[in-house]
């Protein structure tokens, strides 16, 4: 009896005052937008300030009297043109592109092959290996950069950007393999069986069925590999010191700073330009990447 009355009470509270729900909902919306505005200001203020600085004249940057958040004495692109013509920025850019290209290629080949074998050709030890791959993904670069310094030194690769092509896969391959395993495992077994009956061998199965079906995963993995190889900082800082071998992150942070006076405008322009490729890539492929990234964890 009590149960019934209580339920009735709850129900009438729920249905009785429609306006109450409405007000609550309005408040929730209002609070959400307030939070979002605060967070967006927090998240966007550094890039905004970098952009403002990069478009200011040196005189205005140096002038303590003006509002640093605004451009009051005219927009200039001199920092950008200086960067592209007078510094080694373009060399860094080229080196970074080469490194990223090879790392992405190596990563995708290695991880797609491994993920196919681990998710479909179940062999002795494949379960342990899949776990192992995940564990290796958790190994940070800062744990191994010192022994690797000696090892690549022994190989004579120190101070060459090819060393990055060699070591970056340790950061990209495990995670890419892991998400590809997830995507491949979600392909129904009947699909391979149908392909088997249709006469596909392993390579055809991989190239004509698995890769096209798991294309979103492939895109996510590619973006991941690209971003890691573009943004890595520790390895190039430790292993590369010549200007002509330098990549963007380290080049911008170290060599552009040199000199008695910091060229803040140029520095900010460099940082923004160097960050542009991944940002643009995200702008277009954000959804794939987020899906790939979150599936790695949420599917578990």
């Amino acid at each position: 009896m009590t149960n019934v009355t209580r339920n009735n009470g709850a129900l009438s509270a729920l249905l009785g005052s429609k306006s109450n729900i409405h007000v609550n909902r309005r408040w929730a919306l209002f609070a959400s937008y307030a939070c979002l505005i605060v967070f967006v200001i927090f998240f966007l203020c550094p890039p905004f300030y970098m952009l403002v600085t990069s478009l200011k004249t040196n005189a205005e940057i140096a002038n303590l009297a003006t509002n640093p958040w605004l451009i009051e004495q005219g927009v200039t692109t001199e920092h950008y043109s200086h960067l592209l013509t007078e510094t080694a920025f373009l060399t860094y850019f080229k080196n970074t592109v080469i490194v990223a290209f090879f790392v992405v290629a190596i990563t995708m080949v290695v991880s797609v092959l491994a993920a196919y074998a681990l998710s479909r050709l179940g062999f002795w030890g494949s379960g342990v290996m899949a776990t192992g791959v995940f564990l290796v993904y958790l190994v940070p670069d800062s744990l191994l950069f010192i022994p690797l310094f000696n090892i690549v030194g022994g190989l004579g690769l120190l101070n060459s950007y090819w060393v990055l092509v060699l070591v970056y896969p340790t950061l990209t391959v495990p995670f890419c393999t892991w998400i590809m395993i997830g995507y491949f495992a979600s392909i129904p077994k009947e699909l391979d069986e149908a392909a088997l009956i249709d006469g596909a061998n392993h390579m055809q199965m991989l190239l004509k069925v698995f890769i096209p079906v798991a294309l979103p995963g492939l895109i996510a993995a590619t973006i991941f590999a690209f971003t890691v190889s573009w943004a890595s900082f520790l390895y190039p800082l430790a292993y590369i010191y010549s200007d002509n071998q330098m990549v963007l992150t380290v080049g911008t942070v170290t060599t552009l700073i040199k000199g008695d006076v910091f060229h803040w405008g140029g520095l900010m322009a460099g940082a923004l330009l160097a960050a542009a490729p991944p940002v643009i890539l995200y702008a277009f492929l954000m959804d794939y990447y987020i899906a790939g990234l979150t599936s790695g964890a949420t599917k578990g």
Binding site: F39, P46, I61, P68, F233, T249, M268, A271, A275, V279
Partner: peptide
């Protein structure tokens, strides 16, 4: 999308921006 921006910029480069925000004389 707007809130993802910090995570998209290579951290070494965005930290450069922060460094400039914290700069002793010119700190914005």
């Amino acid at each position: 999308g707007m809130m993802m921006v910090p995570w998209v910029i290579p951290p070494a480069l965005s930290t450069l921006g922060w460094w400039w925000l914290f700069e002793p004389t010119y700190s914005a």
